[in-house]
Amino acid sequence: MSLIKTMLLFSALFLGMSSLVADELGDRLEKIMAVPVDQDYAEYLAEGCSSCHQSEQGTGTPVIEGMAKQRIIISLLLYQNGSRINAAMKSIASSLGDEEIASLAEYFSQMAESE
């Protein structure tokens, strides 16, 4: 088992998920990490996130620029399956497929925070 998957398993168990669900999430994470990313597509999708996520830390919405790729992927997967709760983020995350999640995670992880 990869380090990332092990970490996810621990976080998932902490959130009260069954080990089976956590294991499925781990498989999806590894799969999404390996999806090739089209930079132009990522940039287009990322504009959607930038309507709410600020470049500099303020109140309300977190800065996602510079966040680790696996952390963004895990967050989106947890919103999708309802383990993390925010109605707007669940709505958005549920409309994203693997390629889109991979694109966004790659794009924002490559950006320097407060660029």
Binding site: S55, G58, G60, T61, A87, S91
Partner: peptide
């Protein structure tokens, strides 16, 4: 994908939503 705040949400959730709106305004 449709969502709507619920009538029985906690004060903490409502506070978080009001702060989220501030964040959106700045980002937008």
């Amino acid at each position: 994908s449709k969502f709507l705040s619920k009538g029985d949400e906690s004060a903490q959730d409502r506070l978080a939503t009001s702060m989220e709106a501030d964040g959106w305004y700045n980002a937008m």
